[in-house]
Simulated scan of single mutants.
Amino acid sequence: MRIRVQEQPFDLGVESAAFASGHRDMGAIVTFTGIVRDLPDDPMEAMEIEHYPAMTEKAIAQMAEEARARFSLGDVLVIHRYGRLVPGEMIMMVATAARHRKDAFEAATYLMDYLKSRAPFWKREISATGSAWVAATDADEDALSRW
């Protein structure tokens, strides 16, 4: 299990290949990459993401450990960036390895839902008309109800 909270960009191909190598006993690897998306009505210049390192890494590690136990995962990778990101940049990556594809897919979805709603990051969207902190949505909270 690897958790990385970092400011610098990551190379999706390199990370995916490194994660997949050596998992001879796993039958499925699932990856998801989140990208900063633009705002439809007010083009976003950037998203600024803040966090408290000790709290963030501990919370994400706990989520990953819960996913590993719940879905019988062989391995988990979570990379989440912070700092100033612009639309189109990769913000996070989740990778799961399991003996069977259903567990790998469900674990990745579980982690994405929990990262979106429970990881202690503070996000501020900045546009030409101002800035606003991003609040959790009802849809994000509803996604957790299936787990």
Rank of each mutant, 00 (worst) to 15 (best):
M47I: 06
P53C: 12
A46Q: 15
H23W: 12
A28V: 01
E57C: 05
K58T: 05
F32L: 08
R24K: 13
D41R: 11
E50H: 09
D42L: 10
A46I: 10
A46D: 07
A54F: 05
T33F: 10
M55K: 07
K58H: 06
G22P: 12
A59L: 04
T56F: 04
P53N: 10
I29S: 02
Y52W: 15
I49Y: 10
H51F: 12
D25M: 13
A54N: 06
F32A: 02
P40K: 04
A54G: 05
G27Y: 02
T33S: 15
M26C: 14
K58I: 02
F32I: 04
D38G: 05
I35S: 06
A46C: 13
E45H: 09
M55H: 08
I35K: 05
D38S: 06
M55F: 11
D38C: 07
G34F: 02
P40D: 09
M44T: 02
A28T: 01
G22N: 12
G22M: 14
H23N: 13
M55W: 05
P43D: 06
A28Q: 01
M47G: 00
T56G: 07
T56S: 08
P40A: 12
V30S: 12
I29T: 04
P43E: 10
R24Y: 14
H23A: 14
V30Q: 09
Y52R: 09
H23E: 10
I35F: 04
G22R: 13
R24L: 15
H51K: 09
A46Y: 13
G27M: 04
H23I: 10
K58S: 05
G27T: 08
T33V: 15
E45C: 03
R24T: 14
P53D: 08
D41I: 03
P43A: 07
K58W: 03
E45Q: 08
G22V: 13
R24A: 15
Y52A: 11
R24W: 15
I49R: 03
I35Q: 06
H51G: 09
A28S: 07
I29A: 03
A54D: 10
P43V: 03
R37T: 04
P43F: 09
T31H: 15
G34W: 01
E57Q: 11
E45Y: 04
D38M: 06
L39F: 01
P53W: 08
L39A: 03
P40V: 03
D42H: 11
T33W: 08
R24N: 14
D25T: 14
A28E: 00
E50G: 09
